[in-house]
């Protein structure tokens, strides 16, 4: 019985098929796993390692480099508040202080109820809406202290469930096609909503990497 859901395993294999080398799918699959658990659980890391053909240590070693991949549990909502220069010039540190007080935690930690993680983020490329933040990757800008409080309430009450997906759901749109260019074989398009069918058999032994050349004729 695998830890990752059948659907995620199937999607992971679809991802592997998109790249000339399976390991390239490592980070996208980590995002998928976080969509299930919120963070990268050791069980998930082992299964990702199997799927892309590397050791679990290599998955962890790669994932731990990246800010968006969590190797420890985080809150249901990760609030990443930008304090970089454009936001700082628009009061981001004052907003961060307000956030720390309101949530009663320091930036970089999670509320005891597991609801919110507050982070001091670097520029999130939304500087025209300074001061701004992201909740699970979704933007909220030009925030006053009052707006921040309303945002917390809305998140707590589930008013934003449609807007802010569970943590780790980077992309709610699925790629509907596989690779077409090679041999002119079009992969069957798949509707977005339906769960993916059977997981494809893993044709690679763990540790083995496959190199396929895809060139024009």
């Amino acid at each position: 019985m695998s830890h990752l859901s059948e659907d995620i395993v199937s999607r992971a294999h679809d991802l592997v098929a998109l790249y000339p080398e399976p390991r390239s799918a490592l980070i996208p699959i980590c995002h998928l796993a976080q969509g299930q658990d919120g963070w990268l659980r050791p069980e998930a890391i082992e299964e990702i390692a199997d799927i892309v053909g590397v050791t679990p240590a290599e998955v962890l070693g790669t994932a731990s480099f990246y800010d968006l991949l969590h190797t420890e549990p985080v809150g249901k909502y990760v609030i990443s508040l930008c304090t970089n220069v454009a936001c700082m010039l628009s009061g981001a540190y004052e907003l961060l202080e307000h956030g720390e007080k309101t949530l009663n935690i320091r930036a970089g930690s999670t509320t005891p109820d597991g609801m919110f993680t507050l982070e001091e983020a670097e520029c999130i490329a939304d500087c025209d809406h300074a001061p701004c933040l992201q909740v699970n990757g979704r933007y909220f800008g030009k925030l006053s202290n009052g707006d921040f409080d309303v945002l917390l309430e809305d998140l707590r009450n589930g008013n934003l469930d449609d807007v802010v997906p569970p943590h780790g759901t980077l992309c709610r749109i699925r790629r509907t096609v596989g690779l077409e260019a090679e041999n002119g074989k079009a992969t069957q398009a798949r509707p977005t909503e339906e769960p993916t069918p059977q997981p494809q058999p893993d044709t690679l032994a763990p540790g083995q990497t496959q190199r396929r050349r895809r060139g024009r004729k």
């Binding site: 990443s80 699970n136 992309c171």
Partner: peptide, 19 residues
């Protein structure tokens, strides 16, 4: 990775472009 909406929009557009 922070640009979740951008990733969704380009993925959606890519699906359409294939079609």
């Amino acid at each position: 990775g922070e640009m979740a909406l951008g990733i969704e929009r380009v993925t959606q557009a890519l699906n359409e472009a294939y079609e």
